[in-house]
Design a protein around this nucleic acid. Sequence first.
DNA 1: TTGAAAGCGCTAACAT
DNA 2: ATGTTAGCGCTTTCAA
Lengths: 332, 332
Amino acid sequence: MSGSRPTIEDVARVAGVSRATASRVINDAPGASDLLRRRVTQAIADLGYRPNETARALASGRQRTVDLIAVIDNPDLALGAHPYYSRVLAGVVTALETVNVQLRIQVVAEEDAAGRIDTIAADLTVGAILANATPDLATQLQHRSRKVVSLVPTAPSVPVVEADNAGGAYAAVRHLHSLGRRRIAAIHGPDLNTCSIARRSGYRRAINAFKLRDIGTAGGFTREGGHAAALRLLDEHPDIDAMFVACDLMAAGAIQAITATGRRVPEDVSVIGFDDNVVAICTNPPLTTMRLPTEEMATAATRMLLTGTVTPGHRERFTVELVERDSTSEVG
Amino acid sequence: MSGSRPTIEDVARVAGVSRATASRVINDAPGASDLLRRRVTQAIADLGYRPNETARALASGRQRTVDLIAVIDNPDLALGAHPYYSRVLAGVVTALETVNVQLRIQVVAEEDAAGRIDTIAADLTVGAILANATPDLATQLQHRSRKVVSLVPTAPSVPVVEADNAGGAYAAVRHLHSLGRRRIAAIHGPDLNTCSIARRSGYRRAINAFKLRDIGTAGGFTREGGHAAALRLLDEHPDIDAMFVACDLMAAGAIQAITATGRRVPEDVSVIGFDDNVVAICTNPPLTTMRLPTEEMATAATRMLLTGTVTPGHRERFTVELVERDSTSEVG
DNA sequence: TTGAAAGCGCTAACAT
DNA sequence: ATGTTAGCGCTTTCAA
């Protein structure tokens, strides 16, 4: 009776319609009048009905899954290794804890992403979370399926749960400035990466606001990239007294490079990163950084997919906060 | 016809029995003669039959899941943050990619682990992977369910997919010794942690083999712990020229501490870690460490559960290999 | 010990 | 537009 979970049968009965109609409403399928549609929706709400995913899967012949799409350029930093994916994964898993929905992870190599779009879109059931898709890929995927949400900014029409990258970068530079740093160089991420672009624009805005010189180079979001970039920067601009680095992994490399040139962090060169993942406490010295609420963002994105509340152009923005550690200090 | 996957119906027909009997055999349920049991088993093999998990879940009323049990003592190092869990998660997800089995993650606080054992055991369907269980917890769980496999050594009867912790620790010390280091201190993990115990015994064995002095302290497997431990060690034994640190996170802390005392890594004090997770490339200098194949181990453990090949006392051991970076050097 | 048959909760033809 | 009905592949009574 009232002990077990309501079924579609209950919904149909309460709404005074057939199971088929109830099913149509639940699945947003055509072939139901607005009147009945409303009655069913009401019944669902009243009963607190939630479809049994298992029965759905059996009847329809396909398992409902949430797809996590990761575009990989560097195979060394796969799912288990890269702190970003780890956090995304953890966030998605949290949202999936209570529902009967499968998680499918699709690792797509950058070069054959284009070729796989149709297949991916066709296989989508609940929808896809784009961990790090390019605007192009995201747009195409969204065109073919609608059930897509990105964790990084892409194109205006693609639903996104994003971090305030520009604001975070601005705050980072402002912090360095408040410490008396005046020659603040930047190690940016890849030129075409949208997070990287947003962070760079935040940096530029701050540089202008504080009337500083814009010194920057790109590092590719890897430790190696950060290392090489810092070396270049110090070579060309030996008087740099701070670095804004667009991700923690690069910041780790930058710190290694800075100290390798005989400079001290934070006294000679203060460093501020972006992400606040486990790497930040392991650099030497520990890294001051801007914290991204990655897990929370992934959870939110997954919930959107699950509840079907993704609408084109939907935009949710999470704030990014400063976490002070030992890689920054006042000019002394 | 031959196009789609064989069903239990096909198995029953080929074996010349009813669906009910086939089901009994498949589920190891009582009530089937040895003769029929053999015929069904043969038919399953011939057809390459694999049960449809979705149908199973619907009929039985419960979803089959693999449970990943993580005992958490430090909330700061939850699933998304700690590199170990990330790698385990990645490995489990890999094994689950092709099957219709749900992943359920149970985060258990250390203090109420005991109280939750019965509930956890009762809810198990496919089985549980114990990421970091104590011998006590593992034994009790295995007692109540059988379908349990640990990723760390626990008790002899509990099936385990483990790393050669002792061998790895021995190899680490041997490496330091081969570089001319003679005052090799150790930062061990928690006293009661079985990985930590195995690594410590490997260290001791090496210390004896090379006739070195046994200098050690415990660090609790956290960055903070490693930091504090290194400070203590250097204070009490200022002439230490190398450290064997039982995990990368602690090694990161140790390196921070060593350089903070004005010593150089690797020249004055060489450091070798254990794990080889993302942290290892982010320390300053990058960390020489012993690589644990955590993802592969987790995948193997999950497959065992899935195929039902877990038997009490089963023991699988993965080797641990040296990865040289810049935190170790010859005495010069 | 074995088999027949009734569902599990839902989707999707097919009728109306 | 709406309802009727036949399964999806399996487990689990219930009878034999």
